[in-house]
Amino acid sequence: MSYRWLKTEGGIAPCPCCKIGGRKIGFLERTLVEVTSFFRNGLFSEEYAKKNGILQRIDPRVKILTLGILLVAVSLMRHLTLIGGLYLTVLFLAILSKIDLKFFLPRVWLFIPLFSGIIAIPALFNVFVPGEPLLTLITFKSKWSVGLFEIPKTISITKQGLFVATMFVMRVATSVSLVVLIVLTTRWQYLLKALRVLWVPQMFTFIIGMTCRYIHLLLKLIEDIHLAKKSRVIKKTSVVAGQRWVTSQIGNILKRSLQMSEEVHSAMLSRGFTNDVRILDTFRIKRVDYVWAAFFILFTSVILGFNSILG
């Protein structure tokens, strides 16, 4: 090695600046780390998909079709009690599928419903949802207006507002629970293949699977760049330089993606791919599926019946 600079003389110099651990990991850095590990450790732990619960035993196609219909039913409900009932049903199904509620509840609620709960808070007040006051907070001299909307004379929490907020949050929570339940109890590759029952073309599910596969490859590429950047960073760069650096990396990944698509194309051709894809599945409808479907049809009709009787 003859380069003047490529030598270590007198051992490693002590670091003049940094205290290790002084810098917090930025929010989006964490996202990258999380998403990467999410993909690496399997799309989900698949721990629950392998358990021997009720939903795990049902054919993925039947499961997607039935729980999908239930999802639509949730969106049709007009009564808090019915939505509450459906939510309890979903929790019951989770228990029957051997899903630990200590895992399931936080996983569901920390996702969207908590966020929706915050969004729903203003709806409690008569400013947004007028109605019978339950609890009056402030009384102004007269009503006044800010830009497009009006602030009424008294600000209070209304009965209607309470209904709106609870209904909204419960509906979101029940929907999210259902989706999480499907996803947790089905292995990802079966889930994709089973989408066929919803008339999703095989080609499209194949592309979705391939996308996940290559997202992971690109994430690894980014991770490498990221590590390289971190180990090379010497001083704080300016915003403009930072922007240039990040966008040139995006451009690089873009070029790599396009090039890779050409190469993958060759690899597919080489194994006989023409214009359309054929994917094998190993699904078999069993007796338990018929029982489940019959029970489900009964249950959903009853719920929908109540929904329309209650008006």
Partner: peptide, 10 residues
Amino acid sequence: APYLALCAAF
């Protein structure tokens, strides 16, 4: 197929 998958991944 590969084109859309890679574009989507990107």
